[in-house]
Every structure is written in structure tokens, then in C-alpha cells.
Design a protein around this nucleic acid. Structure first.
Lengths: 330, 330
DNA sequence: TTTTTCTGTTAAAAGGTTTTAGCATATGAG
DNA sequence: CTCATATGCTAAAACCTTTTAACAGAAAAA
């Protein structure tokens, strides 16, 4: 009962049905070469009727462009990577390019395995992305012969990277708090060995003139602990707190509430990430900075497309601006 | 200054360097046919030295197996999909199979676009996954001619799907609470139009003998609201609450704390999801059910591999057991 | 010695497309 | 009427691999 429809149509079928040669069919379908408008339309119509779709493998083999790119990430749970991947994918699909997702799980063996697979598949380029902007790529990536773009990860000097503009984001937070009339702004953030934490802290210092930075962990618990520490000491209390992440901010808010301190009246709180599952659900909802990860993904996608077409790109780190999402906490 | 190394080595280069024919080289590398052990080793050694890696496009063109599979998902922010994708990828990479990630963003046009691209690329199979088990796939997916596996999504009658075992999970929660001596167990869950919510509620009813189900939304806020409603009415109060998600549980815990009700002494709370960013950070940390999404991904990956090798699989829904993660809240 | 079997190797075809170079035919210029 | 040019189309090569069928040569059997 297997009809003739269970096999895929090739350009040969189209050519035969249209009564032309394979080359003419190809030319007509791709709109290149010298082709009579009439034949062109006819071929296209018949291809449509037959449901012909060109075999990407054959095409790629010949043209040396697979129209696929690989995304290598150390992330598996995707809070940062997946929005970026969505942005990348969104750009690529409109250009007929598909995306291989390779989660390395921080395992060098796996990274190598994925990388080899990508090369075997003749991908036109690779996007390397990570969970922190100062994570270095696997060394094999550096001398590859195909374009590489770094998104939320550290690339070598002559490469193109896309990062959120952490400094601008921090300034935005401080300025917003100052505009609310706050003058004693405390900064509670994550681990100091994260570059992003240091950049934000530095921008905070410059913008606020203050130096009250508490480095710790990227966790809600640290937010709690930090507040406990602040309020168990004597001395002036802050009237605003700029947190290095929404999770920290959630801990801070919880601890302030436990102490009966009203937010934002007594202390205003600003977070960082706009991770909505948290920022929308704190009480009060959190004013926070959005890193526009999807946009970063889009830009990385456009960049890799450009590179794969041999366009030249200015090397360096492109810092994509953060935006302040205003909710009730500040 | 472009040396001879900037071009990729082909099997032709290997054959020439080893002084054998292309076919011998191929046979030797793949370990098939009749080949002298000595020649085989020599060819392999030289291929290694030259850094030869076979072109997956050419191979796929000929063998009709691209060793790539596509994952179509309606999810972009990845709380459910990404752990599954990680599991899929983990299985596939060990079998030399790569994964195309296609985020449809719930847009049928995009779904069609991605699907066509996957077919053009001759993928060996497709995994359709979603953010809810009763989401139907795009109709084009149903009559495709290549294998499809449904993960956390609804497949047609004759297909193979992998779901978490929601009923078993709910029973586990109830049994755990009963073992703690709780007898008045309330179930606060999400929207009734979600199949998973109904399955869990039904299992809860059977296991507990009670009927106290409150359907609402999948949000922390709903957890709050629900508790407010319960405690503003007269009548017996529950001594345990089984929540349909960790987010709801977080709201429930927050509201209980606001009322000075001690957890777990007065009221024990169990969540569902084991989304660690929440479940580890509630106070007290949340006892909850883990759906083992990564395992579901692994099983889906194995299944699609099997199907792509024309193995037969029993159609139906495979329900993967949930496990109880015990923390302090119950 | 002749015939058969086995072994190691290879030429050639196949897979589906794009592209190059060339072939007729028709049109325009001289 | 001849020569150049433009037009529409096509045969064939190329991309890189796997696989089939066949070919020598050697060993075993008759």
C-alpha cells in the first residue's frame, strides 16, 4: 500500500514533470541564470504541486554552506542561555538557518565532542555562550577556521562579544534611587570573582560616591544574611538597597519585611535580572534591571550570520544596554 | 600565507597519503568489509595524523541518515523544556547524533517554518515537547513519514509519549503527609483546564479520601489568595497542604507565615516541580516532587534513536515516576 | 595440472544539488 | 548575406562519502 508519495521528491522529479533539464529547474527555482519567465513560473508551480523541497544536505555539500550554526553553552537549566537561544533562533529561522544546541554541562570532554560534531556537520559558525561573562571558551574553539561569536561569555582579544552593559545598568539603578531622593544606597551583590559583580560594583561606586558594597553569593539566602548583618550592627542604616540579582533582592525584601521595615517607604530595593518568576512575585513586586537577553541573542545571531557571509565585524565587546523595569519596590 | 592546513582533509587525502584507494580507506575507517589488519591500522593512523573527520553532509546524503534530530518546543523560557533538552542532548551526543533546537513561541507560522527546515535537513526524527502535557502538536507533524516522539506533550493515539507520572506523584505527596500523621489535607493547585492539574487532583482525592481541591492559577499570588480565603472562613483548618506547583507552595508558605502559623508543625506543605531556585529558598525549604525532567528527556532521546533505527516501540503514554524530595516543610 | 575458494583491494556508481561551459536558435548590426 | 550578440536551455562536472560488484593473486581442493 505504499503509494508513490512516500518518497521524497527530488529536483529530478520536478525537471521531468516540467519537461526541462535539471539545470533549468535549478536555475528557475533559485531565480538565477538566464531563464524565460514563463518556464520559471511553470517550474515553480510544478515544484509546489509536487511538494518539492531541496535536500539541504546535498545543497550544503556543494555550496559549502550548511545554513546551520551551532550554539555551545555551559548552561543546562537555561535561565540565561535559553532566552538568548530563543533570540538567536528567531533571527536565524528568518534567514533559513537552523540552530544546533550543544549543552556542555561544563564538561570539557562533552565540549570537545559537541565541537567535533558541529565541525563534521560543516556549520557556518558557532555562538559560544555561558552563564557568566568571564567564562573562557574551550581552547579548541580559538583556532577553528570558522566564525565564532561570544554571547555572555569571554572571547579572545580579536573576537566579537556581546555582553549586557552591566555598568550602565548599575548606573541606571543608582540614578533611579537618587531621583527618589535616596542618599544612603547599599549594594548587596554576588561573588566577587564574577566579573559582572565587579563591574556593577565599580559603576555603583562611581555613581553613588559611596562604597558600601557587600559581596557574597548569588542566592536568596545571602540577601537575608546580609540584611541581618547590617541591622545587627550599629550605625546609619541605608534608605535604599541595590541588589546584584533578583534572588538576592528577594532575600533582602524578605528580611526587611521580617523586621517590619516598609518597602519602599523606609528602604527602596532594586534588583538585577528581571527574572519574572521572582521579580513579579516578591511583595512588593520588584523594580529591577532587564538585561534584554533575547536582544543579545538576536544581535549575536545577526553577527554570526554576517560573519558567515564573510562580512567584516569590528572586534571587541558590544555592550547591550539594560533597561529599568519599574515595579513597586523602588 | 595560507598554508595547506586551512582546507579540510577529505577521505581522498587520507587514501592518497596511505597509498590505498578511497574505498579501502573508507572500509578501514569504518571497520567494515575485508581489510587487512595492518592496512586498517595504517589508514587509521594517517587519518588521525591528518586530522581527518568525515563530512557529515556527504555521509548523510548517501546513507539517508543525517544523524540529527529536531526538538520542536513551544517554550522559550525553558523552565520545563531545557532540562528535557539537556537530557535528550546528553543521550544523543553519545550516539553521534546532534540536536536542532526549534522554539516555536506558540506561533503556528514559526512551527511550520521550523518543521520545513527540519525536513529539508533530513532529520532522522523529531521530538515534540511543550509546557503542558495536553498541548496538541501542529497538525503537519502528524503525517510526516519520519518518527516523532512526544515529551511532555500530547501525541495522537498511535504515538509514543513520555509524561511525568502525575498521579503517582500526587499519591506520593498524600502518602507522605499521611505518614506524618496528617489527616486534613488540602490541595491548592493551578488552572483546571490543565490536564496535569486534573490528574493530580483526582489522584489526591482517591488517596486522601478528601475533596478539598482549590483550582486557581500557577502563581505564587494564587497561593497567597487561596490561604487568605481558607483562613477567612470558619470551619476546620487543614493540617497539611499539597500544592500543585512550587510557586503556589511559596505563596502558601508566605501567607501561612504572615499568619504566624508554623510550618511544618501546624501545617505541613508539599510542593510540585522541585524547581530549586524556589524550593530550596523558601523558609522553611520546601518538600516537593521532582518530575525528573532530564530523565524524561533521556528516555525520549533513546526512544527517538530507536525509532530512527526502525525499531518498533509500543505506542502509548509512558509515565515516568516522580520522586519526593524531602526538605523541611513536610 | 586444473578448478575452486578465499583474501585484499579497487573502480565505479550512487546520493541530490549547484554551477560552469557550451550548444542551438533567434535577433540585430553591418 | 554574413557576422556578432543575446537568449534560453542543457550536459556534465563537482561536492564527499558509502557500497556494490568485480578483479587479481594466493591458497586449498580436486
Amino acid at each position: 500500500m505504499t503509494g508513490p508519495d512516500d518518497k521524497r521528491r527530488t529536483i529530478r522529479d520536478v525537471a521531468k514533470a516540467a519537461g526541462v533539464s535539471i539545470s533549468t529547474a535549478s536555475n528557475a527555482l533559485n531565480g538565477i541564470g538566464r531563464t524565460n519567465a514563463e518556464t520559471r513560473e511553470k517550474v515553480k508551480r510544478i515544484a509546489d504541486e509536487l511538494g518539492f523541497r531541496p535536500n539541504a544536505l546535498a545543497r550544503g555539500l556543494l555550496t559549502k554552506r550548511s545554513h546551520a550554526i551551532g550554539m555551545l553553552t555551559n548552561d543546562t537549566y537555561g535561565r540565561l542561555t535559553l532566552p538568548m537561544a530563543a533570540g538567536v533562533s528567531e533571527i536565524l529561522v528568518d534567514h533559513g538557518v537552523s540552530l544546533f544546541l550543544c549543552a556542555t554541562n561544563n564538561d570539557p570532554r562533552l565540549a570537545k565532542l559537541h565541537l567535533d560534531a558541529l565541525l563534521d556537520r560543516q556549520v557556518d559558525g558557532i555562538i559560544f555562550s555561558a552563564t557568566r561573562i568571564d567564562l573562557e571558551p574551550p581552547p579548541e574553539l580559538l583556532k577553528l577556521g570558522i566564525p565564532v561569536i561570544y554571547a555572555f561569555a569571554q572571547g579572545p582579544a580579536d573576537s566579537v562579544s556581546f555582553h549586557p552593559d552591566d555598568a550602565q545598568g548599575a548606573r541606571l539603578a543608582v540614578q533611579h534611587l537618587q531621583a527618589l531622593g535616596r542618599s544612603r544606597i547599599l549594594h548587596i551583590t554576588g561573588e566577587q570573582n564574577y566579573l559582572a559583580a565587579r563591574i556593577r560594583a565599580e559603576a555603583y561606586r562611581e555613581a553613588s560616591g559611596a562604597c558600601d558594597v557587600m559581596f557574597g553569593e548569588w542566592s536568596e539566602e545571602w540577601g537575608h544574611t546580609a540584611i541581618d548583618a547590617v541591622y545587627s550592627q550599629t550605625g546609619k542604616k541605608p534608605d535604599a538597597i541595590f541588589c546584584g540579582s533578583d534572588e538576592i533582592a528577594r532575600g533582602v525584601i524578605g528580611a526587611l519585611r521580617d523586621r517590619g521595615i516598609s518597602i519602599p517607604d523606609e528602604v527602596a530595593v532594586v534588583g538585577f535580572d528581571n527574572w519574572e518568576v521572582i521579580s513579579k512575585q516578591t511583595r512588593p513586586p520588584l523594580t529591577t534591571l532587564d538585561m534584554a537577553l533575547k536582544d543579545i541573542g538576536r544581535r549575536a545571531g545577526l553577527a554570526i550570520l554576517g560573519l558567515s557571509r564573510r562580512e567584516k565585524l569590528e572586534p571587541g565587546i558590544v555592550r547591550h544596554p539594560c533597561s529599568l523595569v519599574r515595579r513597586a519596590s523602588a
